[in-house]
């Protein structure tokens, strides 16, 4: 809403609904690594705003900066310059502890290799982000149970990750990413380790979440997966290459660039 964020694409084409409130605002983000004598700019003045309820696929070849962007979006890495706000909160203002709590409260992570904790069962894994919060909301166990059922694991609550298939593990990870009702769900090659049928099921789950109004950012290098998203953001050399909006899953592009 603030409008101060510079978007490279024209906002709100005619006939499109009024833009929803911004969830993640990145403004002039740079991320510089020092490799010996050389300075490498993984992100170079990146500015963009992700809004509530949007479903983005972030694409780009390796070295395009998409991993760095994801790390910054996920608040596990800090930009060397620029401003990043999540739901209005400037991330740079948070110290390490606050940032940790912030990650657990506002972000949902889904990884390529599921990243469940092997010694915890399904329910405990789903509850993981809550357990590190200073205050555990009431009835959170019921919510975890509900989420487990929702992703089709109601019968396997006390299985360990090793006892589950890849698809099932990824479902647990999705349930885990939802437990805190995060502002942003970040999925990093979420289907990369799955066969196409299972991948399809996971992507359908994302569609459902999108339909419910969740904000999803899906990093992928598979064009097929990217096509499933509502919008596609392409990166190249640490900045935006192209923005495609309104690519619905039915393929009717409304605002292709």
């Amino acid at each position: 809403m603030s409008g101060s964020t510079a978007e490279s694409a024209e906002p709100a084409a005619a006939g499109a609904p009024v833009p929803s409130e911004p969830v993640a605002e990145l403004s002039n983000i740079t991320r510089m690594y020092r490799m010996g004598e050389e300075e490498v700019h993984a992100l170079d003045g990146f500015s963009f705003t992700f809004r509530k309820g949007e479903y983005w696929a972030i694409m780009g070849s390796s070295g395009s900066g998409k991993s760095t962007l994801l790390n910054i979006l996920g608040c596990v890495d800090r930009p060397t310059g620029g401003s990043y706000r999540v739901r209005g909160q400037e991330v740079a203002d948070l110290d390490d502890d606050e940032l940790s709590t912030f990650r657990g409260a506002e972000l949902g992570f889904i990884f390529q290799s599921y990243n469940l904790i092997p010694q915890l069962d399904v329910l405990e894994n789903i509850l993981m982000p809550v357990m590190y919060q200073d205050e555990v909301p009431e009835g959170i166990e019921d919510r975890a149970l509900e989420l487990a059922k929702r992703v089709g694991l109601g019968e396997r609550l006390h299985h360990r990750p090793m006892q589950l298939s890849g698809g099932q593990q990824q479902r647990v990870a999705i349930a885990r990413s939802l437990i805190n009702d995060p502002a942003l769900i970040l999925a990093d090659e979420a289907t990369g380790n799955l066969d196409s049928k299972t991948a399809d099921e996971i992507l359908e789950l994302f569609d459902e979440l999108h339909a419910e109004g969740k904000t999803i950012l899906l990093v992928t290098h598979e064009a097929e997966v990217g096509r499933r998203a509502e919008n596609v953001l392409r990166l190249k050399d640490g900045n935006i290459d192209s923005v495609e909006r309104g690519v619905s899953r039915d393929g009717e592009a409304t605002d292709a660039k």
Binding site: D97, I117, M128, P129, Y132
Partner: peptide
């Protein structure tokens, strides 16, 4: 190491 990374990403503070 990886488990530590996951826990940190999911909100664990250093003290945790």
């Amino acid at each position: 190491t990886r488990e530590i990374g996951i826990r940190r990403a999911l909100g664990a503070k250093r003290k945790h």
